[in-house]
Simulated assay, not measured.
Amino acid sequence: MTQAHHDALLRLIEAGGSTAARRTLLETHRDPLAALEAGPRAWREAGCDETQARAITGTATPSAQRELARAWLAEPGHHLLGWHDPDYPALLRRVANPPLALFVAGDPGLLWHPAVAIVGSRSPSAGGRDNARDFARAIAATGLGVTSGLAAGIDTAAHEAALSVDGITVAVLGSGIDIAYPRANAGLYARIAGRGAVVSEYPPGTQSQRGFFPARNRIIAGLALGVLVVEAAERSGALITARLASEAGRDVFAVPGSIHNPMARGCHRLIRDGAGLVEAASEVTAAVAPLAAELGDALRQRLAAPSSGAGTAPGDAATSETTDDPDYNRLWQALGHDPTGMDRLVERTGLTTAELSSMLLLMELEGRVAVAHGRYARRRHDTANTAPSGAGRGK
């Protein structure tokens, strides 16, 4: 997006009120600048009430919050995705009341990467923490991402374990995008932003509030193929995440524990209510495979769409057979039969990590590429030196 489009979207974010009305405004007018230029009558037709219309008008003068957001977005690796943007994560569109926009520190392309959310107690037992690490490490080693909320306890263990095997991890905040919460996780925030992605619907400078965390949980659930609850009390935010995931049609899994452990009671309740009882990461990865295929279809549509968000409404991407592309061929030639890490592929191809992630995901879903422990290789039956028919760009 251009600076003008960023500013227009920031004005819509500042206006507050019904998210649904502002999403409708973006859908109707295709980009935030056009939505603002449409005027008060169009705003009301989209469902904005008088308070919102006055707020949108009043945000014409840059606020301190918008100046802070502008400065944050000017930094390398900082991004803003709006509802109108074709890069807005496909799975997140399916949740109830999806965010109007997402601030992203790191690689926004990873929000499309198939992932499992791992959540649980902020004060887990030693065994619960070990389980979170073991599951996250094993899931990340398969090539799936690990999504969580950067909170203390289970969330922290899951993020750290994914990073330990050079896996992909995404952290969703219940505060402004520039605020690590808890503060003790500032170093972990920086590591995730450097190698994965940190996400928030709240602009820079927004302090955390109690009500932000349940709202944050719908994003965790919405970005993931499924949610794994490792350890949680009967009254736990992790159970909210599980419920939201179930309502969005995602799989919910729970790790059982001792009947004497109060931190296991939430998991046992989920199992009684129909969540999958799991004892190994392989059970989780096998169960989410069908939804991963659906995500692959959505990605194919995205690869056929324009790379700019301006002027493109959600769902406009054409579903068509893509053609051979020089970048795809370059990646195919860079891939060998021995596993190769992402850093080496970046060196060999000259492409960015974001571009490679998209192309590798598509090739993996087509059965052309195998991934293990964060390294990629051609599958054994693919011995040809040319790219497969139908390959497309990962931009």
Rank of each mutant, 00 (worst) to 15 (best):
R250C: 11
S389N: 10
Y376V: 05
D85Q: 03
R218E: 07
R22C: 03
S18F: 05
T323K: 07
G296L: 02
V371L: 02
L295G: 10
L150W: 09
H79D: 12
A305D: 12
L365F: 05
N97I: 02
G367F: 02
G374I: 05
I220D: 07
I56V: 12
Y181R: 09
E283L: 01
S121T: 14
Q65G: 15
Q3M: 08
T285S: 06
A171T: 10
R44W: 06
P114Q: 00
L33G: 09
V371D: 01
A74S: 13
T61C: 06
S148M: 07
Q207E: 15
H5M: 08
G17L: 14
V172A: 12
R11F: 02
R250S: 07
A126F: 06
A318E: 15
L361D: 07
G249L: 02
A141C: 10
A384C: 05
L92Q: 05
S175E: 06
A21Y: 02
L361P: 03
E355P: 01
G128N: 04
T61F: 05
T2E: 15
I220P: 13
R272S: 12
D178Q: 01
E347W: 04
W83Y: 14
V170H: 10
L92G: 04
A387Y: 04
S308H: 09
G367P: 00
G39Q: 10
S389I: 14
S389Y: 11
P62E: 13
G205A: 04
A8T: 08
A132K: 06
F213C: 08
P89H: 11
A193F: 11
D107G: 02
L81Q: 13
